[in-house]
Structures are given as structure tokens and as C-alpha cells.
């Protein structure tokens, strides 16, 4: 069975011409990416498996991987920034970075504008 790769860009996905162009492909199924059990996929037991690989899902975990999972579950939850950074690295979604930075700055601005520091924000505009 032929499958599409991850190479298609997001603008193709939202193309309005999906039907008028009538794709010559015989299938639109995509091979599944690897799934990871925590919010951020940075688990030692699975480090050797990239989430972007295009072959099938992980092999059944061995006894040791079940133990490793249990051990990791005992850890403290990583912080939000650390988790998100891990997500960007793992998925190589670097283009999201400027959007996130701008969003972050906007949030900081909103927070500061509600504090006594508000007058000092005006010089930035």
C-alpha cells in the first residue's frame, strides 16, 4: 500500500482545491509517527526512537522498558518551559519558535500592564 510521507506542507493540507485537482494518489493514509507516553517525549527508554521516523510504531516494550517506565513515572513533573522546549526539539518544530516568543512577550506585557510597572511599558511603543 502506498502511503504519504510527512513531506507535505501545511498549506497543501488546507488547500481549497483538494477535489478540483483530484489527487492522483491512490491513498491518503499516512504512516503513523511514534507516540510517547509523557507530555514531552524525552524518556530514556525511548530515546533511540525518533517521533519523526516513518516506519511503524515501537516494538512491544521489554520487561526492562516497563521497569524504566515505572521508574520515570516516579520522577518529578518537568516544568512547562522544559517540557515545551523538549517538544520543539523532538519534533523539530523550530518555525513555531517566533510565534511562541511573540505570544510570550504579549503575555508578559499584559501581566506588566496590570501592575505598578505599567507606566514604564509605554516607552516600548
Amino acid at each position: 500500500m502506498s502511503t504519504q510521507t510527512d513531506s507535505e506542507n501545511i498549506f497543501d493540507l488546507f488547500s481549497n482545491g483538494a477535489v478540483s485537482k483530484r489527487s492522483g494518489s491512490s491513498s491518503f493514509y499516512q504512516t503513523r509517527r511514534l507516540a510517547m507516553p509523557f507530555a514531552r517525549p524525552s524518556i530514556a527508554v525511548m530515546d533511540d526512537e525518533s517521533p519523526r521516523r516513518t516506519d511503524s510504531l515501537q516494538k512491544p516494550p521489554s520487561d526492562s522498558s516497563a521497569e524504566a517506565f515505572s521508574k520515570m513515572a516516579e520522577d518529578r513533573q518537568p516544568g512547562f518551559l522544559s517540557e515545551f522546549w523538549g517538544f520543539l526539539v523532538q519534533n523539530k518544530k523550530w518555525w513555531l519558535t517566533p510565534i511562541l516568543v511573540i505570544l510570550f512577550l504579549l503575555i508578559v506585557l499584559v501581566i506588566i500592564s496590570q501592575t505598578p510597572l505599567a507606566p514604564f511599558v509605554y516607552p516600548f511603543f
Binding site: 500500500m1 488546507f14 482545491g17 483538494a18
Partner: peptide, 23 residues
Amino acid sequence: YEHLIDLKGDGSFRMDMSYFDYT
């Protein structure tokens, strides 16, 4: 079938998003 979806024999399909607004 003609306007909204391009359905393949294996059940996979694409939709013409100009008819939808949920994105």
C-alpha cells in the same frame, strides 16, 4: 462525492475545505 470529498478505494479521503469553515 463530486464536490466535498475525494474518496479513495481504501476509504481514505480529502475534503475540499472551501466548503467548510471549521479550520
